[in-house]
Nucleic acid binder design. Structure first.
Length: 203
DNA sequence: ACGGGGATCGGCT
DNA sequence: GCCGATCCCCGTA
């Protein structure tokens, strides 16, 4: 069907996951579903590093599950945790295991479909968590290995009207049991759409 | 408003 | 069999 020319290219993802996570803030995630366009603005993302990061799934080497983390930058890595799906993007370089986890989005379009899929929860809770956004956008295991740079069915693109001067805060990641203190969670400061509040930016 | 605990299930030991 | 890169419900204030 349709293919978007706007999808962020491999070169965007072929950088340090911290840089990619920060630069993804303000971008639009687009999901084509049943002829409808469901979109949201990325407001929260976490980096998982290829080296010195015991919280990364790839820390103990390649397995059948985490293989997409090693694929070319811009490849989707979808994994299950506690019976739910979460969406990552592979970063850095092919053969190097690093990724950015999409943790929260601000709803932009296709809200009715999202509300249906999320069981009529408050709009505030449609996309405010890594597994919530996957449920709202119908992202599941079949997207593991999907090429997000192809502009097909699921991709990320720049916003129509670029927001002026985004204020970004970095803080520790949510839910990890190791490497708790690394400031690898990146949020748009003051956004009401985060999975959890983030500290105020240090002036 | 906030925090504790249970549900849930695929992947790995 | 155990352990999560989670979510939701149900207590308390």
């Amino acid at each position: 069907m349709s293919t978007s020319e706007l999808a962020l290219p491999e070169a965007f993802y072929a950088r340090d996951p911290r840089t990619v996570a920060r630069d993804l803030l303000g971008m639009s995630l687009v999901r084509l579903l049943d002829g409808k366009r469901l979109t949201g603005t990325v407001v929260e993302a976490e980096a998982y590093l290829s080296e010195g990061d015991p919280a990364a799934h790839s820390h103990r080497g390649r397995t059948p599950r985490n293989g997409s983390m090693f694929e070319r930058p811009g490849t989707a890595y979808v994994y299950a945790i506690h019976g739910r799906w979460c969406l990552n993007v592979s970063t850095e370089a092919e053969g190097v295991a690093s990724a950015v986890l999409l943790r929260a989005l601000e709803p932009l379009s296709g809200l009715d479909a999202m509300r249906t899929r999320r069981g009529g929860r408050k709009d505030r809770d449609l996309l405010s968590g890594p597994a919530k956004l996957c449920e709202a956008l119908a992202v599941a295991r079949h997207f593991d290995g999907h090429d997000l740079t192809a502009g097909h069915t699921l991709w990320i693109e720049p916003p129509r009207t670029p927001p002026p001067d985004l204020e970004v805060v970095a803080c520790p990641r949510i839910g990890v049991t190791s490497a708790k203190d690394l400031p690898l969670r990146f949020c748009i400061a003051g956004s009401p759409w985060l999975s959890k509040p983030a500290p105020a930016p240090t002036a």
